[in-house]
Structures are given as structure tokens and as C-alpha cells.
């Protein structure tokens, strides 16, 4: 081999792809693949559960979601499977949970990112994360043994004070055992607070220092700075955190099963016992056969559909609100 015979190193042309393009291709296939995998799993779950639930859907038709009666073993006639009461219980207990958990979580997250002295932040975060580590059955047992009995006098007092108010009073009806929508909602609130807190905290901590400085330099108080610079920046993320919490609350099974009271019931009275879809499934699955089993799986399908629907709605809301708040980009 002689030096003179060395061919000149080929200069890459502009249309030729460099070696780094391979990495890009692998990366894009990988992300596309994992994305499709998630979709496929979701689809698979939906298809198989719908198939398993089909006998119940077939027997009930649309009544499966509009019927409030749930009677698997009637004395006479066919079994009736209506999901409405349980969907109501799921919705009410989850809403109560958010009503309490969201302000508390956002408050804690703001405190931790904006107010708390630095050395307090680490320990506080640990304590909150520990709350997330408590198994839900423990929350359920605590609810049934401690919280529910302790709340009865308070519920009674609220019934006495607010029960007489027209319309609003109907929320505070007669009190039973203390195992009811309200107690379930409160236990759920405690259970979803850590997840909402930790995500909102992350979101708040991504607000650029420059934005906060801009607000402060205009003479904003800390609260005005939070409203003007922190919230607009984090609205979408906070809604995402709330949706995760809501998903957890709606899907929570054992804790709710223990404290919601176990009644097929649609009532405005928050102090009345009820039931949720997830709780019914876990309570009744063991003793079910045939169409009854199918109906319980059907509850799962309805729950799944509700969660997806709410998430889609939330995204629409976020997009609208952000367009209004941040101004349109185009």
C-alpha cells in the first residue's frame, strides 16, 4: 500500500445521513413503540373486559348504566344489574375527596416551594411521602375503627345546625353509623393528598426564577407573585396532578369498601351509606357466578370509561383555560 494511492477520505454529502442519525432513528422507533404498546395494552384490557362483561350488557342493555337497582338474587324474576347507584357513589366520594385534598395539597406544595425555610423542606416532603406508603387496607381499617365512630358526633352536630336549611340542608341529612359517603370521601382525601402534593410541588418548582423576579420587581406581595407568576405557569400541571389523584380516588377499592357503608343508594344525604363501583366489585366478586360475574366486570368497564372521559374533559379544559390565560400563540 502506498501513500499516494490512498483514496481521499470521502466528504459526506449534505443529503447523506451521518452516524448520529442512527441514534435518532432508534430513539424515535423506541418512543413510538412504547407509545403503541401502552395503547395496545389499554385496547386489550378494554376488549377483554367488555367481552367478559357482555352477558350482563346483553341482558340489561342501556339499563346497565341508567338503572339504580342492583339485585343479583331477586326472590322472583330476573336479576337486575344497574350500575347507576355505584357510579353515583364513586363520583360523590371522589368529589368530596378532591374538595378537601386539592386545596390542602396545593397549600402544602406552595408552602414547601415558596415559604418554608429550606431546612424544613426535606423532612416535610419525607413525611408526606410516607403517607403515600401507608397501605390502603390500613386506611380502611383505621377509617372503620377510629375515624367513622369519631365523626358521628360531628356529623350529628352538622345535621342539627345545617339540616334545616332548604336545599343545602339535604346534604346534611340523618346520620347513621358513620360509615357513609362523607367518611369515604375524607379517607380518600387523605389517601390522594400525597400524590397531588408531590406532583404540584414539582410543577411549582419549575416556575422560572425570572418570572417570580418579574412579579416581585413590580411590587407584588408573595401571594400576588404566586397568583401572577406561579399559577399561570403551573395550571396545566396542577390539573394533571388533580386528575391523577382523582383516578386514584375513583379506583380505590378496599378502603372505600370498608368505610362507605355498603348500601345501594342514591341520595343527596352525605351522611347516608352508599357504595362505589370498585368497592362493590371487591365485596361481591367471590360469591358471583355467570351473569352476576359479568355484571361486576361491567362495573369495571364503566369505571374505566368514566376515568378516561374525565381525563379527556380535563385536557380540553386545560387547553381552553391556558389559551385564555396565556393568550393565544398564533
Amino acid at each position: 500500500m502506498t501513500l499516494t494511492n490512498n483514496p481521499p477520505a470521502a466528504k459526506p454529502t449534505l443529503t447523506q445521513r451521518g452516524s448520529s442519525a442512527l441514534g435518532d432513528r432508534v430513539f424515535s422507533w423506541w418512543t413510538l413503540g412504547t407509545g403503541l404498546l401502552v395503547l395496545a395494552i389499554l385496547g386489550l384490557i378494554l376488549i377483554t373486559t367488555v367481552r367478559e362483561a357482555w352477558p350482563a350488557f346483553d341482558a340489561m342493555g342501556l339499563r346497565f348504566i341508567t338503572e339504580r337497582v342492583w339485585d343479583p338474587n331477586p326472590a322472583t324474576g330476573d336479576a337486575i344489574f344497574g350500575a347507576l347507584s355505584f357510579a353515583y357513589g364513586t363520583a360523590v366520594s371522589s368529589l368530596i375527596a378532591l374538595l378537601f385534598a386539592v386545596p390542602v395539597s396545593v397549600g402544602i406544595a406552595l408552602f414547601l416551594t415558596e415559604l418554608a425555610p429550606r431546612r424544613l423542606r426535606g423532612p416535610a416532603v419525607t413525611v408526606i411521602d410516607l403517607l403515600a406508603a401507608v397501605p390502603s387496607v390500613v386506611f380502611g381499617l383505621w377509617g372503620i375503627l377510629v375515624v367513622a365512630p369519631a365523626l358521628v358526633p360531628i356529623y350529628q352536630w352538622m345535621h342539627d345546625v345545617f339540616g334545616g336549611i332548604p336545599l343545602l340542608g339535604r346534604l346534611f341529612g340523618p346520620v347513621g353509623s358513620g360509615r357513609n359517603f362523607m367518611t369515604a370521601g375524607l379517607i380518600l382525601a387523605i389517601m390522594v393528598t400525597p400524590i397531588i402534593t408531590s406532583i404540584t410541588r414539582e410543577v411549582f418548582s419549575t416556575v422560572p426564577r425570572a418570572d417570580k423576579d418579574a412579579a416581585l420587581a413590580l411590587g407584588a406581595t408573595r401571594w400576588e407573585m404566586i397568583r401572577g407568576a406561579v399559577f399561570p405557569h403551573s395550571f396545566g400541571g396542577v390539573v394533571g396532578a388533580v386528575m391523577l389523584g382523582l383516578g386514584r380516588a375513583m379506583g380505590e377499592t378496599i378502603a372505600v369498601a370498608l368505610v362507605i357503608g355498603g348500601a345501594t343508594n342514591i341520595t343527596a344525604n352525605l351522611f347516608a351509606p352508599g357504595n362505589s363501583m370498585a368497592a362493590v366489585i371487591v365485596q361481591q366478586f367471590g360469591e358471583s357466578t355467570g351473569t352476576f360475574t359479568a355484571a361486576l366486570i361491567g362495573l369495571g368497564v364503566v369505571l374505566f370509561a368514566m376515568t378516561v372521559l374525565i381525563n379527556v374533559l380535563a385536557q380540553v379544559v386545560v387547553r381552553r383555560a391556558e389559551a385564555r390565560m396565556k393568550g393565544s400563540v398564533a
Partner: peptide, 11 residues
């Protein structure tokens, strides 16, 4: 400030 830092809001 050195870096323009408008809020993520309308003008």
C-alpha cells in the same frame, strides 16, 4: 432584567 421575562400571559 437582562433576559426578557414577560409572564406567560397575553400582552
Amino acid at each position: 432584567f437582562q433576559k426578557p421575562n414577560p409572564f406567560p400571559k397575553s400582552i
